[in-house]
Amino acid sequence: MDETSPLFVISVAAELAGMHPQTLRQYDRIGLVSPTRTAGKSRRYSMRDVVRLREVAQLSAQGVSLEGIRRVLELEDEVTGLRARVRELEAALADEMMNNRPGRRVFAAGSQGEVVTIRAGTRVRRENAVVVWRPLER
């Protein structure tokens, strides 16, 4: 079991979060904390849900509106996702650096902004065209 395992019925989750069960139902309705559902449609809260409920309570006590709380939680989730993506990219880069394969590919930007693959040690040819702009005559 991990922190995302749906373990707690609504009364237990409410007690752990220090809230009334009706408050948890309201938060579920507006999408602040959405627990998983059983086949019988009853709510099951994970430890992560309980932590989030406590965070909602703390923000609410500080005077943040429910819409503000929803936005804060959304941004925190986005930051968490971006941090995970950065870790993935760092691992991939480290793997490439460790393997240091000869003839590996290098990427550059093309004239239209597209990604262009080139071999290591080669240069991208750049156009030396001159473009003259003249306004339309009226």
Rank of each mutant, 00 (worst) to 15 (best):
A108P: 01
D2L: 13
M47Q: 13
Q22Y: 08
L16E: 01
R138T: 10
R125W: 12
R126S: 11
G113F: 01
E137H: 06
S65E: 06
V116W: 02
R105E: 14
D95G: 05
R85I: 00
V86G: 07
R138F: 08
L82H: 12
A94C: 03
Q22P: 00
R37K: 11
E15K: 13
W133E: 11
R105F: 09
R138N: 09
F107V: 12
R71K: 11
D28Q: 08
R87M: 08
V124Q: 14
L89G: 02
Q112K: 15
I118E: 03
R37Y: 04
R119C: 07
A109D: 07
T23I: 05
E127K: 13
G31Q: 07
A120W: 10
A84Q: 12
G110P: 05
S11L: 04
E137C: 08
V72D: 07
E114L: 04
R126H: 15
E67I: 11
L59G: 00
E78S: 09
L73P: 02
K41H: 11
E88Q: 12
Q58F: 11
G113L: 04
L66R: 01
E74M: 09
Q26R: 13
E15P: 00
L16M: 11
D49R: 02
R87G: 07
D49L: 01
V79F: 00
R25N: 03
S46N: 03
D2M: 10
E114T: 05
W133V: 13
L53F: 01
A94M: 05
R70Q: 12
R105K: 13
R54Y: 04
E74D: 13
L66D: 04
K41R: 15
L66P: 00
M19S: 07
L16H: 06
M19I: 08
R125V: 09
P6H: 09
E15L: 09
G110C: 06
V50P: 07
Q112H: 14
I30V: 12
S11T: 12
T23E: 05
R104I: 03
V56A: 00
Y27Q: 01
L93E: 10
A61V: 03
V9M: 06
E90S: 08
L89P: 00
L16N: 03
G121C: 04
Q112F: 08
A14G: 04
V64G: 00
R52K: 13
V9N: 10
R104G: 08
G40R: 13
E76C: 09
T80Y: 07
I30M: 09
I69G: 01
R105M: 13
V12A: 12
T122C: 08
Y27F: 11
A57S: 14
R123P: 03
V79M: 04
V132F: 13
R37E: 02
T122V: 14
A17C: 02
V131F: 11
L66V: 02
F8N: 01
V51L: 15
L136W: 10
R126A: 12
V72Y: 08
G40F: 03
S11N: 15
I118V: 15
V124P: 00
R126Y: 12
G103C: 03
T122P: 03
T23D: 00
R25P: 01
M98I: 09
R29A: 11
P21T: 02
